[in-house]
């Protein structure tokens, strides 16, 4: 269609012999030459427009009253009504606080852990043992989140392994999954368990890329292994750390919502309920589509701001950035 339109424009301007004409000829030529490449893009672009940009546009229902079964863009403008609604909703502040605490714990615990793991592995000189540890550590990454949740619930169950240990020391057994004060520990531990090995891959790749001469030079300067780690190894993997940190900050508020949905229950809502699970209950379970969308949009915009902000700051300070 587009090609056809350009074709007719081209014939019209033929008599005018302008530079415009030459430019058109160029454009038309590339399109004519590569129309088969463009035709391949057609279906994927339609996919992106409908399934990725469609829902972005669908966020408009945060500003309109939406009736289930009604128009996809909602019925009438209500402006910031739903935003004012959640700003006055005490539960919103509660789940926001829970989200921030979990996100912060994830950032200070599960982000550095793979770096430390990679550094420890890097000190192993026996190839076979290193490979064995590495291969084993990836395994949990490939388990379905449902299976992971199932395993977690079995481990912390009243008759589970954790309670065997706890009973040995205290003589008592607890139903940890029903105790709000334990939810964060359970959640962070399971995240650590699932992501430790996988998260180390990129660091290990960066570590193999460090020039051996740097270590030798440090050695000649009298640096011991620890000083070499501080002055050679860490600077060597710093670009990788920064890039992954930016990506992590971009996903700051997405605190493993699917796993929380599987692990939480009314008894541990107090600490387990986060923005995403609240949106799910408001939007899907109670069918308050517009209200849920407004909270979801708020979260997405914060996420986007965080990734741009982190990228900007990192470019200024370390010269490393995503783009």
């Amino acid at each position: 269609m587009q090609e056809l339109a350009k074709n007719t424009t081209h014939t019209k301007s033929k008599t005018q012999l302008s530079t415009m004409d030459a430019r058109w000829k160029g454009t038309m030529k590339t399109i004519k030459k590569d129309w088969q490449l463009y035709s391949l893009l057609l279906l994927p672009v339609i996919y992106l427009v409908i399934f990725k940009y469609g829902p972005m546009f669908g966020n408009i229902i945060a500003f309109r009253r939406f009736i289930p079964g009604g128009s996809i863009v909602g019925e009438e403008w209500v402006g910031l009504y739903y935003f004012k609604m959640f700003l006055a909703d005490p539960t919103f502040y509660h789940v926001l606080q829970n989200t921030l605490i979990l996100a912060f714990l994830l950032l200070i615990i599960t982000f550095p852990a793979p770096i430390i793991f990679a550094l420890l592995l890097n000190e192993v000189k026996r190839k076979g043992f290193k490979r064995f540890v590495q291969t084993t550590s990836y395994l949990p990454h490939f388990f379905s989140i449902v299976v992971v949740a199932g395993m977690v619930l079995e481990l912390v169950a009243v008759n589970g392994t954790i309670n065997n240990i706890v009973e040995f020391f205290t003589g008592e057994r607890y139903s940890f999954i029903q105790m709000p004060e334990w939810f964060r520990t359970i959640f962070i531990s399971s995240d650590l368990w699932q992501g430790l090995g996988w998260g180390a891959i990129l660091y290990l790749a960066a570590l193999t890329g460090i020039n051996n001469e740097l270590y030798e030079a440090a050695w000649i300067d009298g640096a011991n292994r620890w000083q070499q780690t501080i002055h050679v190894t860490i600077p060597g993997i710093l670009p990788t750390i920064v890039v992954l940190l930016i990506l992590n900050i971009g996903n700051f508020l997405q605190v493993g919502f699917e796993k929380i949905l599987l692990l939480y229950n009314p008894l541990n809502y107090e600490t387990a309920d986060v923005i995403a699970t609240y949106v799910y209950r408001i939007g899907i379970e109670s069918a308050s589509f517009s209200y849920g969308t407004a909270i979801g949009l708020f979260e997405a915009i914060i996420g986007l701001t965080l990734v741009f902000g982190a990228n900007f700051i990192s470019r200024k300070i370390t010269d490393n950035s995503l783009w």
Partner: peptide, 10 residues
């Protein structure tokens, strides 16, 4: 991304 509910509606 569009978020949970706009996706659901779509």
């Amino acid at each position: 991304s569009g978020g949970l509910i706009p996706n659901y509606v779509l």
